[in-house]
Design a protein around this nucleic acid. Sequence first.
DNA 1: GCCAACGTTGGC
DNA 2: GCCAACGTTGGC
Length: 226
Amino acid sequence: MPRPRKRQTGTAGPDRKKLSGKRTKTENSESTSVKLENSSLEKMTTFKNGGTDLSNYWLMKSEPESRLEKGIDMKFSIEDLKAQPKQTACWDGVRNYQARNFLRAMKLEDEAFFYHSNCKQPGIVGLMKIVKEAYPDHTQFEKSNPHYDPSSKEDNPKWSMVDVQFVRMMKRFIPLDELKTYHQAHKAIGGPLKSMTLFTRQRLSVQPLTQEEFDFILSLEETEPS
DNA sequence: GCCAACGTTGGC
DNA sequence: GCCAACGTTGGC
């Protein structure tokens, strides 16, 4: 029932028009994404215990300010998440293969930063956790939904979502600016944010973080705003 | 509101 | 399978 919408990505489903006959475009997109996903996961895995019980870290973007898309407000802030029953919501509306594949890689109890995008003060505002692993995003079948995808079939849903639960606010807001400053510095000196996906894959709305990235960002909570 | 970045579409 | 046109993301 909670059905926030995060505006994640193109309204236009990547291949809404074909898929009856040929699906080459789709499959290209998917396999490309899968590769990216895999390499990312491999990268993360090498930093960890390698097999069981690996927890992953994520950053998920959502718009905290009202913006209408097909007459529907895309706003979903961390305050909105907090206000949901059980402070839990489904993360619907993702329509990008890479982002979708990351959603599908999420495990119960994985932690994710809640990032406010497309707003006055973009940045990380809080922490949430995954409370339900990927399942079909119902909005792809709803004609009136801005993220409706007519090419997706009920018996083979194309798009997925997860459920997330509010964990806590950041002790202080971590602005994009500040992350960017560290990213630049770390590129030069090889610090933890040197290849943060927020800067290397600009438009990706669901993205993985390494343990190092996650820990470093948490450590910023204890520092003075820069 | 502008526009750079970048993913997708579709003609050829 | 290339690539120009187009649409979206999201910072500024």
